[in-house]
Nucleic acid binder design. Structure first.
Length: 116
DNA sequence: ATAGTGACCGCGT
DNA sequence: AACGCGGCCACTA
């Protein structure tokens, strides 16, 4: 569990039910627009049982990215549907469900300078 | 310090 | 619209 991970989890924790955010969006809000893959990596390491709503994070195409994990893929879809997010051909309309982000302007720090 | 990996992304076929 | 590529960042070994 790294500092980056926790920062990611904290932000994701603010996504309200029924809304979604993309990996890239999370990265951008964190101040590192191109760290989308790193966000995915952080989520992969998310401890089971965490209160973090990981299922509200999807890829830029509105789809679910858990390729190697069929079970996880299905559960994510189910969790979203349970919150009212509708799927159309394995995809959700980002235009419709995208989380605007914490209206707070500055957003979380940690561009990429968390060196010890 | 170096190289390899991936729950990504955008652009060009 | 679906693929293929190359680029990117943080993490690991």
């Amino acid at each position: 569990m790294t500092v980056f991970d926790r920062t990611v989890y904290r932000l994701i924790g603010r996504i309200p039910p029924g809304r979604v955010a993309t990996y890239g969006q999370i990265a951008t809000l964190l101040g590192a627009p191109r760290a989308a893959r790193a966000v995915g990596f952080a989520l992969k390491r998310l401890p089971a049982g965490s209160p973090v709503p990981w299922h509200r994070v999807i890829n830029a195409r509105g789809g679910i990215s858990l390729r190697a994990n069929l079970a996880g893929m299905l559960s994510q879809r189910i969790l979203l549907k349970r919150e009212g997010v509708r799927f159309a051909r394995d995809r959700v309309s980002l235009e419709r469900y995208r989380w605007p982000g914490p209206h707070r302007r500055p957003v979380v720090r940690l561009p990429a300078l968390e060196r010890l």
